[in-house]
């Protein structure tokens, strides 16, 4: 499939009212359609501000800043049009659940966009089935786990058929099981619906699964590239309060202790195979 730029930010600045420091500084960024981008950074690095800028929940404070989403310039005039293309899943599963039941919650976004009832009755069961929540259509949120609520939030986004889905620390409050399920579902939907995913996270193992990793520190991009490229910069990441995923930690430890590992090895499976081969050759 042809790769097109779906998100383009140039010179984006944002300062919160009454804040001394800008939360986002001179941010330039291009994302291609159908890819998974992980945006990482320590608590307070400006990650969530970026997600709000991408959906017009905040607007840049510099008039020269430009944000293009799905071919549209994002301005207060176009914001509702742009939001049709962008869905966000937020961090707290309980605080974004609007409906009294699972089906009502998925319906909320559809109702806002004036989708006909007949169409809602088609789409809601379909998206609930996609996230594995079909049996819970009438369940109330207080009877669901955090992971289940996040899956409902994803269904709510999918129902609106957006081109872009932002996960704003959507897995931070989940247990490992819920986290894995959410990531697996999003990955499947990305391929199936050709979605562009932006995942804001400090789960580095999650970031390691992305096509592209962006590292934000004090509102500025300090590194971009594939996970392999970014996670090579161990010192830089450590300085900005992050750590390496397990695989990169192991690799650098082994190298430091004199076991040479070729740079062509970029995954855990490859490392296992390499070490076992090394063992046979001994």
């Amino acid at each position: 499939m042809e790769q097109k730029d779906i998100i383009k930010l140039s010179q984006v600045d944002f300062t919160y009212p009454e804040a001394e420091q800008p939360a986002v500084k001179a941010l330039n960024l291009t994302l291609q359609a159908g890819t998974w981008t992980a945006l990482i950074g320590h608590n307070g690095s400006g990650k969530s501000t970026v997600s709000k800028l991408l959906d017009g929940l905040l607007f840049p404070t510099n008039p020269d800043s430009q944000i293009m989403i799905a071919g549209l310039p994002l301005t207060p005039e176009t914001v509702w049009e742009v939001r049709k293309h962008v869905g966000i899943v937020f961090q707290n599963p309980d605080h974004q659940f609007v409906g009294a039941t699972v089906a009502d919650d998925v319906a909320f976004g559809l109702e806002n966009r004036g989708i006909s009832r007949a169409e809602m009755q088609r789409r809601i069961p379909a998206v609930l089935a996609q996230v594995g929540m079909a049996d819970y259509a009438d369940a109330e949120p207080s009877h669901l786990s955090g992971g289940q609520k996040q899956r409902v939030a994803i269904a709510g986004v999918l129902a609106l058929k957006p081109q872009i889905m932002i996960l704003d620390e959507a897995t931070a409050m989940l247990d490992p099981e819920g986290r894995k399920m959410v990531i697996d579902i999003v990955r499947k939907m990305m391929v199936q619906d050709h979605l562009t995913i932006i995942s804001i996270t400090h789960d580095l193992d999650e970031a390691n699964l992305a096509d592209q990793v962006l590292v934000l520190d004090d509102g500025q991009l300090i590194a971009t590239g594939t996970p392999a490229e970014v996670f090579q910069k161990a010192a830089l990441l450590e300085r900005s309060g992050l750590a390496l995923p397990f695989f990169y930690q192991l690799k650098s430890e082994l190298m430091a202790q004199g076991i040479n590992i070729p740079t062509t090895i970029t995954t855990e499976t490859e490392l296992v195979a390499y070490l076992c081969q090394l063992n046979l050759n001994m």
Partner: peptide, 27 residues
């Protein structure tokens, strides 16, 4: 307050612009 702020943000992100033009799922 925190819930209210989060909820308002989530509602806005999900396209809530007031009740005019909304359709109803629950009938």
């Amino acid at each position: 307050l925190e819930i209210a702020v989060d909820l308002a943000t989530a509602m806005e992100a999900r396209g809530y612009q007031g009740t005019s033009g909304r359709t109803r799922y629950r009938v």
